[in-house]
Simulated assay, not measured.
Amino acid sequence: MKINYFWDKDYSLNEIGIQLNPQNQHLTTKLDLNLNGYPKLEVINPMNERKSTINYSEIYLIEAMDHLSKIYTIDEKIFYAKGRLKEFEALSINGIIRINNSVMLNLTEVVAFNNGQYARLEVHTKNGQTHIVSRHYAKQIKEEFQCLKN
């Protein structure tokens, strides 16, 4: 994505104007989240079953379980959250994308990817792990990864 800056003295010092093509209307939510701060997700600590919140930016991976989802954070903590992966698909705005039927991954943690067997994609993360992206989600992952790089 290309970003252009326009300087206008008519704007006040605490105001920013953003112009978008109408086809990019879906990006407004993403921009709002990045500029105004990330919302939090309510999670359950498995050690003491206490509820707490974490920022979406702290999420490394979400793994499907039965009626709960297992949340792995970037600093290697594990939490549970109520809901299935389908309910977390709105997190794609924050770069947390579904990579197969049972896993969602934070794309900001991806350092490289390469083609795997049977039109699948292998994704390598900052902590040295490799995850397999199913062929159904491979094209979407490549597009999102290219957008993050630009």
Rank of each mutant, 00 (worst) to 15 (best):
residue 26 H to V: 02
residue 2 K to M: 00
residue 23 Q to A: 15
residue 11 Y to D: 02
residue 3 I to C: 00
residue 23 Q to R: 14
residue 27 L to I: 10
residue 37 G to P: 03
residue 24 N to C: 13
residue 21 N to R: 09
residue 17 G to I: 04
residue 27 L to G: 00
residue 17 G to K: 03
residue 7 W to H: 08
residue 38 Y to N: 09
residue 3 I to G: 04
residue 32 D to S: 13
residue 28 T to M: 10
residue 17 G to A: 12
residue 27 L to V: 02
residue 8 D to C: 11
residue 29 T to G: 10
residue 29 T to R: 14
residue 23 Q to W: 02
residue 10 D to W: 08
residue 4 N to P: 01
residue 10 D to V: 04
residue 36 N to H: 10
residue 1 M to S: 08
residue 15 E to K: 15
residue 38 Y to R: 00
residue 5 Y to S: 08
residue 32 D to V: 05
residue 1 M to G: 14
residue 21 N to Y: 08
residue 3 I to W: 08
residue 38 Y to C: 09
residue 38 Y to T: 05
residue 13 L to G: 00
residue 23 Q to Y: 12
residue 25 Q to F: 04
residue 7 W to R: 08
residue 30 K to G: 03
residue 30 K to V: 06
residue 15 E to T: 13
residue 4 N to V: 10
residue 38 Y to E: 06
residue 36 N to V: 00
residue 38 Y to G: 01
residue 3 I to E: 02
residue 25 Q to H: 07
residue 9 K to H: 07
residue 26 H to D: 11
residue 7 W to D: 00
residue 16 I to H: 01
residue 30 K to A: 15
residue 37 G to I: 06
residue 26 H to W: 05
residue 11 Y to F: 15
residue 39 P to E: 14
residue 21 N to H: 15
residue 18 I to V: 15
residue 30 K to I: 04
residue 6 F to R: 09
residue 38 Y to D: 11
residue 8 D to R: 04
residue 6 F to D: 05
residue 10 D to R: 15
residue 24 N to T: 01
residue 4 N to K: 13
residue 35 L to H: 04
residue 4 N to H: 15
residue 3 I to L: 13
residue 3 I to N: 05
residue 34 N to M: 15
residue 1 M to I: 00
residue 37 G to A: 03
residue 38 Y to H: 10
residue 19 Q to I: 10
residue 17 G to Q: 06
residue 10 D to L: 11
residue 9 K to Y: 12
residue 2 K to S: 09
residue 29 T to F: 08
residue 13 L to D: 14
residue 20 L to I: 14
residue 14 N to R: 03
residue 8 D to I: 01
residue 31 L to A: 06
residue 39 P to T: 09
residue 22 P to Q: 11
residue 22 P to D: 07
residue 8 D to W: 02
residue 40 K to G: 04
residue 9 K to M: 01
residue 23 Q to D: 14
residue 39 P to L: 05
residue 28 T to I: 12
residue 22 P to I: 10
residue 40 K to E: 14
residue 3 I to T: 12
residue 3 I to P: 07
residue 1 M to P: 10
residue 24 N to K: 13
residue 10 D to K: 14
residue 15 E to F: 05
residue 26 H to N: 12
residue 12 S to F: 09
residue 27 L to A: 08
residue 21 N to L: 06
residue 10 D to I: 08
residue 5 Y to A: 07
residue 22 P to C: 03
residue 40 K to P: 01
residue 17 G to D: 06
residue 2 K to T: 05
residue 2 K to A: 03
residue 4 N to L: 13
residue 26 H to F: 12
residue 25 Q to G: 05
residue 40 K to T: 13
residue 3 I to Y: 09
residue 24 N to A: 13
residue 30 K to C: 07
residue 36 N to W: 01
residue 5 Y to T: 11
residue 16 I to V: 12
residue 14 N to T: 11
residue 20 L to F: 12
residue 31 L to W: 08
residue 7 W to V: 11
residue 21 N to D: 14
residue 19 Q to S: 14
residue 2 K to I: 05
residue 4 N to R: 13
residue 9 K to F: 08
residue 24 N to V: 00
residue 29 T to K: 14
residue 5 Y to M: 09
residue 39 P to I: 02
residue 35 L to A: 10
residue 36 N to A: 07
residue 27 L to W: 02
residue 27 L to Q: 05
residue 18 I to D: 02
residue 39 P to K: 11
residue 19 Q to W: 06
residue 19 Q to A: 11
residue 12 S to L: 03
residue 22 P to H: 08
residue 11 Y to W: 11
residue 29 T to I: 02
